[in-house]
Design a binder for these strands. Sequence first.
DNA 1: AATGAATGAGTATTCATTCAT
DNA 2: TATGAATGAATACTCATTCAT
Lengths: 211, 211, 211, 211
Amino acid sequence: MSQRARAEPSKGYLLQAAFESFATHGYQGASIDRIARAAGVTKGAVYYHFKDKEELLFETVRNRIVEFESQVLADTSADDDAFAILRRVVDACFVTATESNHRRFIMTLMIEALGTNPDLSDVFRLELRRMRAFLSDVVRRGQEAGEIRMDVLPDEAASLVVSAIMGAEIQHYQDPERIDLRAVLDLQLRQLGEWLRPVQKRSVQLGEPTW
Amino acid sequence: MSQRARAEPSKGYLLQAAFESFATHGYQGASIDRIARAAGVTKGAVYYHFKDKEELLFETVRNRIVEFESQVLADTSADDDAFAILRRVVDACFVTATESNHRRFIMTLMIEALGTNPDLSDVFRLELRRMRAFLSDVVRRGQEAGEIRMDVLPDEAASLVVSAIMGAEIQHYQDPERIDLRAVLDLQLRQLGEWLRPVQKRSVQLGEPTW
Amino acid sequence: MSQRARAEPSKGYLLQAAFESFATHGYQGASIDRIARAAGVTKGAVYYHFKDKEELLFETVRNRIVEFESQVLADTSADDDAFAILRRVVDACFVTATESNHRRFIMTLMIEALGTNPDLSDVFRLELRRMRAFLSDVVRRGQEAGEIRMDVLPDEAASLVVSAIMGAEIQHYQDPERIDLRAVLDLQLRQLGEWLRPVQKRSVQLGEPTW
Amino acid sequence: MSQRARAEPSKGYLLQAAFESFATHGYQGASIDRIARAAGVTKGAVYYHFKDKEELLFETVRNRIVEFESQVLADTSADDDAFAILRRVVDACFVTATESNHRRFIMTLMIEALGTNPDLSDVFRLELRRMRAFLSDVVRRGQEAGEIRMDVLPDEAASLVVSAIMGAEIQHYQDPERIDLRAVLDLQLRQLGEWLRPVQKRSVQLGEPTW
DNA sequence: AATGAATGAGTATTCATTCAT
DNA sequence: TATGAATGAATACTCATTCAT
């Protein structure tokens, strides 16, 4: 087995361990030493691969954001209708919120960065903007296609969708016993759907949520 | 004037300083020393009044939650209709999110406590449950009064309202330039209102949001 | 015994230990931990009394420079002739070079600071300037009193004296077996004396060095 | 072209880079990694060519001392008079102190080695002895030739010369703005010359320094 | 009721050194 | 002849906590 074959994983393990540590304990709460041990290497190895703790953090964040985006935003074929895309976004959030620690990682760091790490805060701010821009676009195209009522501003709708998802996630992290994330997200999809559909359509479909 | 009368302020100043420090830097990011100096006393004084940093945190949290509840949940006179109460809750959240650091304090510590402080997490979990219970009750009474459609589960509606508020807040903290908290909250009130009103009423009021 | 009576020494011990550590190992070579242990306290105590290693260094330097100046420059009564003062300066350098680590401390840090610590370098630069200014003044007054030949620039003479002393010290630190600091300094005093005395006087006294 | 022909430069680059790093930052302040990068190779290469950091240091020192000696001490043809040789030594010191980092390198490491590296200290001690021996010899031969007064011990004169040079250098490194090394060295040459010439000769030449 | 001095465990970071390739 | 990955010991510094006064 070549050195490379043994070596490269090491950086990967570190990113993985950092991801989990940061997601669970936040930036300040995660110690380089524990991350290194969790990755099965020594502290020194961390500093071989990353300039400092912050670079480790940023690479971890970048890693995950890229992964999240490609999962959530990319695999929407252009021919889907607005509601199908919305549902897919929500589904992706659900998966990354429950099966991995993705969403919690982002949530945790985002809040922590608020008062302490302007650079990181910028990253998340941009990320949220990108997400809202994506959703806004979906709504706008939905309006063009006649699927969504016209008296709603796409940007406003996007904020609502993001609020709904993040609010549901926080409540779920706080109280997984009481807050069934899947159920809340589904309800929100239904409720947002009802609200967004044009009036004439809505009255027809009331009571029979098809998605 | 008794010694007590001169002495007690010191504890108050500490709680105030701790509140601001915790709200801005989180639990780990706030140091006893800086809190003490911000309160105009020395570290020793902290340990005179509080067993340890955690006790200081808990008293601060208790302090603020009580205050928040009395402000948000308590001043709803029984004769208001469901939507008026909802609006008042949202307004209170807005005020405590912008004029003081209340909401941000709670949000920050809640997220931070998730993976690190089960006891504190319990406090917030109970607090969120209390809030949902309150909202659930409002909805249930609204249904009894015929103001709210019957095919909505009060508990589910409560989750949605809390999601909406918290999601809006987070986005606002993240990106105050782009996210106008007042506007987003108003939109959510309108949107939730539309959704919650019984069908026959809703069709009448479409386009003219009265609240 | 009051707390103060036990406590204040601690800072003094630290300054003493720092002085010795810095003098022997230089700034980089002296570790906070070893300084603390040498002073009989823990690292934490260092950081209670001093902001950081650099502040400890600067306070130590200030301490010693003040002490050195008061010893070397201050106790020269105005009625002494130039050569008596010169001799006293040299004597003071000898004492602080051999009985304590004063001079070596300064020499060591001065050289180390050159490429690494501009602020510290400034301190030493100013100190050397002060010393040259003092000597320059001594020479100038000696000229006014007719004790010193007129065709010598006081500033130049001052540089020569400082060169001679520091050069002798370095050689002595390097090779105490071969370089008898007392002897070299005495020789330099004699030689500088011969050179500085006015010509008519010098010819008379040649061969009989009175100091 | 043999491998050797391509490979050896690497060691040379390392010695060059080490020389500059050590001269500027001292032994402790210079890191293997930065030296390697400055030489355009990786740390590993250092350990291929040198056992450890100390060996790199010693080879660098040996390199430079040899070079310095060949420059300063060797090129004195036997037929020069004592003062011409002295002047040449001083000139060489001036050049190596200003045009290259030679003298500063030696000065810096010599002081740093004092309390920390006995072996290195030995090297410098021997070097200084060699220099004094050379100068002592120059003086002794000057006395035999009648150029230098007899009541001066050659060894003592040598210490004075070395003192003067090193003292001037230190002051210059410390305060290049105020201490013009060339001027101070010239003054010292003149002053030492006056002192060393036999009395009858000296009176003749007073006022007209020929060197 | 509060201070000032001090502790000790923990944190990020650096760096000389090793070694398989 | 060198590199890239990794180690481990040391370093400066922080901070919650203790305690005599």
